[in-house]
Write a protein that binds this DNA or RNA. Structure first.
Length: 877
RNA sequence: GGGCGAUUAGCUCAGUUGGUUCAGAGCACCUGCCUUACAAGCAGGGGGUCGUAGGUUCGAAUCCUACAUCGCCCACCA
């Protein structure tokens, strides 16, 4: 059969992916086998494939494919997340382009648009994952707003509320003025910014020219000041206690209070207190019973309560008010200042602390089991260093704000029936709510009297149920009992708190069991300059384009070449090229083997040797790979495969068994080589699924789909004959040296050489056939007089000599031997010095002493050999 | 401000309990080869006082201390 000279990924990839789908190799149903389960970290429904997904899903696919080949019931559940903020923003944007404002739409109409958008554009990413080769069970595709999934979210809310773990309260929350919603602490990113520190003086009430100066970075909130605060120990201000100050511009009188909270060192030692717009000020306000004046609207403009600048944006007002304060003589000075400001992760606008009525989950006790089970490794983190920050967070966990002022998501099942803050019921639907409301209130309420909470739940309040709800585990035990707990979770450390921690919490709460055994944290994919790849920087290559150029297999390998667990990955397209080259290498190995025509003839010795060596090497490599897998060292796993395939399999093994030019191969050897090649393809399949499946079918005829590589049994390691492999290695070392002699002396490969040697082990004689095959040695003379005029080298205890030909630089040889002699003498000296050290002799373990003595005797022997050599060449040294 | 981690070849990184599997790998680089599987290749080669300074030890890339540089996470100093 003619095999094309170059592997064509495009044709092969679509062909085999369809083949795998057609024969349902990715499908999983519970059976008697051991399950192996991964749930995908659901990408945003709005998402498109980026390099982070590539890394993440390549790793998951490798794990799943290996488990499948190991005979486990492998199940990889795909799906997408409704991502309320991101999706709603996207839909709002799209509507705006069409000239429709969200505020002009009813909730129902908006949601209709959102669903339309979701059905049309959502989940592109899943189609892209198929290109990558992701072997997900697509029949299990889940969306976090599927009916059953939604039901589990609402039921969970109801359950936790019953348990007293969910409450509604007026709190200071992180307000995103762009998305006009509260966001959780985890969604706030603190950035260092250059701003100004404004020193503003307030007149003391009842005086004509007495002032107190405060320092602030946010002068626009002056309009909401309800106190000035000083430290009670601060003697500079003792005289002000109990007095009042006048807020500039609005001339409102506010009390001057004293509290330890104020840092006397900072600024002027006087703090303006704005309870509505700062967390600390809020706490102070509660403590000192201060008035709360909210001067900002939900979109970040000044509210009516501000009385000035109404409707203008907070940042415009900051500039204006500074100017106005200056004009009125209140601005004492303005100095540059660096501080940290919280930004919204989603919209990247500065977060506004804002008091509002929100829903919270009490986390303190609720999260305890999740901390314990990670610390004792019931849930194992890879790499384990992440346990530290996990503990840090979990020990200081705060209540989780779960309400969002959005429409896209799971609507909070709270129904209000009266004006009071507690006039509500939590119910699964309106009918039940009405019944409960009637009971609670004792009134004859009608459906129209009920008003459901306008807010939806934080997206993570649904994704934390993912490992349970993808199996419909709240309502049907069969599947969840089989697949849960899942095995490995592969995700980014960035969402350890958002998602991982909360899944563990939910897992123990609702299953009494961990959601997964291992969490593998991948690094962040960065560009060559170490910058995180992002759309806005435009430094992220399009994965789909990369796959077109290098093939999906090439890109998969490229992602893995540099991704140690938990370390960031500096992505370089050259790595994909390396992956592509690797594909090409094994492809050509196939072409070579397929070109061999067998015939009846005896097996050459060299082939028998190489085959035995390959058998042993496979066992070693399988062990090594298995160790890497067990520790999630994917990069090392790939590198082991890479070096084994390239160096051992192609460079040594195939070269050794390759029939001489024009000759045919014997049947036994071809059969063994084919079997070895199959084994190699199995080891490579999880990494390079497409090309290996293609080659698998080219290598031999496969009669039924059940014989496809994707479900072929994973190879097992056998006992290794170390004497044999070490002897073989000595022979290949010698071959390298002999090749070097050829090269340095321009002895062409076609010209046979003769080798003299002595001092090697008797058992190594069996490897001599390798010399003739691999460096064209025509004869090996053992234990005879060594030729005086020769190139020599010594490995271990064996001395090799290749007699000079006609034209040779004998001088150079002598220098080389001298150099080695000097080095060896120095080495001997250091060893002997160590051995003669009494304290070393007394303290070092016997094993180490033995090694040192062996070094000594080897060195002495080598020196003798070299000196003999020199005198034979007529040199006195 | 608190915590965690890192620093080994030009680059990206291995180096498991201190001792011949300790100074390694891949890429890049240099030299010679278009040798009919593969130039996306073959064969060979050079390259590091293991961040700095001390300490412990018979012995330190490995353990301890300080310092320097970088990164990450957490945190309400206006």
């Amino acid at each position: 059969m003619e095999i094309s000279k170059v592997y064509d990924p495009a044709a092969s990839e679509s062909k085999w992916y369809q083949y795998w789908l057609d024969h349902q190799f990715f499908k999983s149903v519970p059976d008697e086998r051991e399950p192996y389960t991964i749930v995908i970290p659901p990408p945003n429904v709005t998402g498109v494939l980026h390099m982070g997904h590539m890394l993440n899903n390549t790793i998951q696919d490798i794990l799943v494919r290996k488990a499948r080949m190991e005979g486990k019931n492998a199940c990889w559940v795909p799906g997408v997340d409704h991502a309320s903020i991101a999706t709603e923003a996207k839909v709002v944007q799209k509507l705006r382009k069409e000239g429709i404002k969200k505020s002009d739409l009813s909730r129902e109409d908006f949601l209709a648009h959102a669903w339309e958008w979701k059905n049309k554009h959502g989940g592109i990413i899943l189609e892209q994952l198929k290109k990558l080769g992701a072997s997900c069970d697509w029949d299990r595709e889940t969306f976090t707003m599927d009916p059953e999934y939604s039901r589990s979210v609402i039921d969970t809310f109801i359950d936790l509320h019953k348990k007293g773990l969910i409450y509604r309260g007026k709190r200071m929350v992180n307000w995103d003025p762009s998305a006009k919603t509260a966001v959780s602490d985890e969604e706030v990113i603190h950035k260092e910014v250059n701003s100004s520190l404004y020193h503003v003086r307030y007149q003391i009430a009842g005086t004509t020219d007495e002032w107190v100066t405060i320092a602030t970075t946010r002068p626009e909130t002056i309009l909401g000041d309800t106190a000035i605060c000083v430290n009670p120990k601060d003697e500079r201000y003792t005289h002000l206690h109990g007095k009042k100050a006048i807020v500039p511009l609005v001339n409102r009188e506010i009390p001057i209070i004293a509290d330890e909270y104020v840092d006397m060192e900072f600024g002027t030692g006087c703090l303006k207190v704005t309870p509505a717009h700062d967390v600390n000020d809020y706490d102070l306000g509660v403590k000192h019973n201060l008035e709360v004046i909210d001067v900002l609207n939900e979109d970040g403009t000044m509210s009516g309560a501000a009385t000035l600048y109404i409707g203008e944006d907070r940042f415009d007002v900051r500039k204006k008010i500074a100017a106005d304060l200056k004009a009125s003589g209140h601005l004492v000075k303005q100095e540059p200042y660096n501080n940290k400001v919280g930004y919204s992760e989603r919209t990247d606008v500065p977060i506004e602390p804002r008091i509002s009525l929100q829903w919270f989950v009490k986390m303190q006790d609720f999260s305890k089991p999740a901390l314990e089970h990670v610390m004792n490794d019931d849930v194992q983190f890879w790499p384990p260093k992440f346990k530290n920050s996990y503990r840090n967070w979990m020990e200081n966990v705060k209540d989780w704000c779960i309400s969002r002022q959005l429409w896209w998501g799971h609507r909070i099942p709270a129904f209000y029936y009266g004006p009071g803050e507690n006039d509500f019921v939590i119910a699964v639907n309106e009918i039940e709510a009405l019944q409960m409301a009637r009971n609670n209130s004792g009134l004859d309420l009608q459906a129209a009297d009920l008003r459901q909470d306008e807010d939806v739940l934080d997206t993570w309040f649904s994704s934390w149920l993912w490992p349970i709800s993808v199996f419909n585990g709240f309502y049907n035990k069969e599947e969840v009992d089989y697949y849960y707990p899942t095995n490995d979770l592969v995700t980014a450390p960035e969402i350890m708190f958002f998602w991982v921690a909360r899944m563990i919490i939910a897992g123990y709460e609702y299953r009494g069991e961990k959601p997964f055994k291992n969490v593998y944290y991948t690094g962040i994919v960065r560009d060559q300059q170490g910058r995180k790849m992002s759309k806005s920087l435009g430094n992220s290559p399009d994965p789909i384009e990369l796959m077109k150029v290098y093939g999906a297999d090439g890109v998969r390998a490229g992602m893995l070449f540099s991704s140690p667990a938990g370390n960031d990955l500096l992505f370089d397209e050259a790595l994909c090229e390396q992956g592509r080259n690797f594909s090409n290498k094994i492809w050509n190995a196939l072409r070579l083997v397929k070109s061999w025509e067998p015939e009846e003839r005896s097996q050459p010795e060299v082939a028998a040797l190489a085959i035995e060596w390959m058998d042993n090497r496979f066992s070693q490599v399988i062990e090594e790979i298995s160790d890497h897998y067990s520790k999630f060292r994917m990069s090392d796993m790939l590198m082991t495969c890479y070096k084994f395939a390239w160096n051992d399999f192609c460079s040594w093994y195939l070269e050794a068994v390759k029939p001489a030019y024009g000759e045919r191969i014997d049947h036994d050897t071809l059969a063994k080589v084919t079997a070895h090649f199959e084994k190699l393809l199995k080891l490579l399949h999880p990494i390079l699924p497409f090309i290996t499946e293609e080659m698998w079918h080219l290598l031999a005829e496969r009669k039924t789909p059940a014989e496809a590589l994707v479900v072929a049994p994973w190879p097992q390691a056998n006992a290794v004959d170390h004497d044999f492999t070490e002897g073989f290695n000595r022979a290949t070392d010698a071959i390298t040296q002999l090749r070097n002699i050829r090269k340095q002396n321009n002895i062409p490969n076609k010209e046979p050489i003769e080798v003299y040697l002595r001092g090697d082990a008797d058992s190594d004689v069996r490897f001599y056939p390798l010399f003739s095959r691999l460096v064209n040695v025509s004869a090996v003379h053992r234990n005879v007089d060594m030729p005086a005029q020769a190139f020599t080298f010594v490995t271990g205890a064996a001395e090799y000599a290749v007699p000079f030909g006609d034209t040779v630089d004998a001088e150079g040889q002598v220098d080389k031997i001298k150099e080695e002699l000097i080095y060896t003498k120095g080495f001997l000296q250091s060893v002997q010095k160590k051995l003669s050290n009494e304290r070393f002799a007394q303290n070092a373990p016997e094993k180490v002493l033995e090694i040192e003595r062996k070094k000594e005797s080897d060195a002495i022997a080598k020196i003798a050999l070299l000196q003999e050599k020199l005198s034979a060449m007529g040199v006195i040294f």
